[in-house]
Design a protein around this nucleic acid. Sequence first.
DNA 1: GAATCTATTGAACCAAAGTACAGCCGGCGG
DNA 2: CCGCCGGCTGTACTTTGGTTCAATAGATTC
Lengths: 186, 186
Amino acid sequence: MPVARLVMRSALPGTVFEGPGVIWCRLRSEESVDAVLKVVDRAGGQPLVLLCDEPNESLVMQALALGAAGCCNTHAAPDVLRQVALVVSNGGLWVGQSLLKKLVGVTSQRLGQLPPEGKSDDWSALLSERESQVARLVAAGSSNREIADQLAITERTVKAHLTAIFEKLGLRDRLQLSLRINGLKI
Amino acid sequence: MPVARLVMRSALPGTVFEGPGVIWCRLRSEESVDAVLKVVDRAGGQPLVLLCDEPNESLVMQALALGAAGCCNTHAAPDVLRQVALVVSNGGLWVGQSLLKKLVGVTSQRLGQLPPEGKSDDWSALLSERESQVARLVAAGSSNREIADQLAITERTVKAHLTAIFEKLGLRDRLQLSLRINGLKI
DNA sequence: GAATCTATTGAACCAAAGTACAGCCGGCGG
DNA sequence: CCGCCGGCTGTACTTTGGTTCAATAGATTC
């Protein structure tokens, strides 16, 4: 009951409304996320939920990155909003199903890459340190020229490393290497 | 009250216990996440929470990637577990504070890299049917020759489709296309 | 000290990827 | 009917990727 009323009132442009344990904040289409979040006083670390007219993934990510506990459609059903309130007021994070999948997928691969010595991925064990650097840059989409500049070596040397990498891992080209490094292919 | 009792019983090694709206599953130190999650029957899409003796970031990420709604310490305080139950039974995701920060941080960084107004899966909407087929094959690591054979067209035509794809998605080469298709660039 | 591994580079070369500038055909909407 | 778009292809070209001959130098190991 309180949640529904909160939403009704927070639907007014620019309105910030504080409910039991949750701060709701309406974000109009033309407003930027950081600008709005900056002016909201978050006393006591209360979770904040953004209400957007047209939420999209990049917007939601931005909101989460800036400390919001969730972001959902202004015109979402009251039941949904009640659930959101319940989740975030208990320290949870409200993420849409599709975004969640993507976010977790990307990040888990990313975390797996970051520790140079950490994980089981055989490629890092098979390659020398320098070769691993080159491999990572290739997997991120860089060209030989870019890699050469970044590592301050010749493009020729980059090619030499790549030839060695392909040989060691039994791969054909940089695309297959990318799939291997990113954990998408054996 | 029910939550506390659930946890007590699910603390037995390998035990899977179903509470009101939540499935709890104990993960022992020597067990692998995917092995355990694979055998759990998730009827009705109920959220599942993993209870680990020594949770770490990579473990939690793995659990989330495999569809768990959360992962917390087996010996967590009853109050915490009650909150977790509340959050996930309402469709929320339970992420520890420190991990949350890291997760959002890493992902938001990548948002800054590729601003050109593209969500990660708008590609299928922007491309024609034939172009999508080519894009998928490229993302899987196929060469132009292989794609041509597979689609029973000329290598020249494959190149034509690729040129159109690069233009439409604002990409440079097949490697970047692969990253885009595989959701590694947002 | 010889052998081995790694990093680095050069010149030349082949192959694959990608672009530029075309053309042909079929369907579809005004 | 005509313009537009999607699919398909050709010739010729530039760029990038990758290999095959090398060679030099430091570090490590036996």
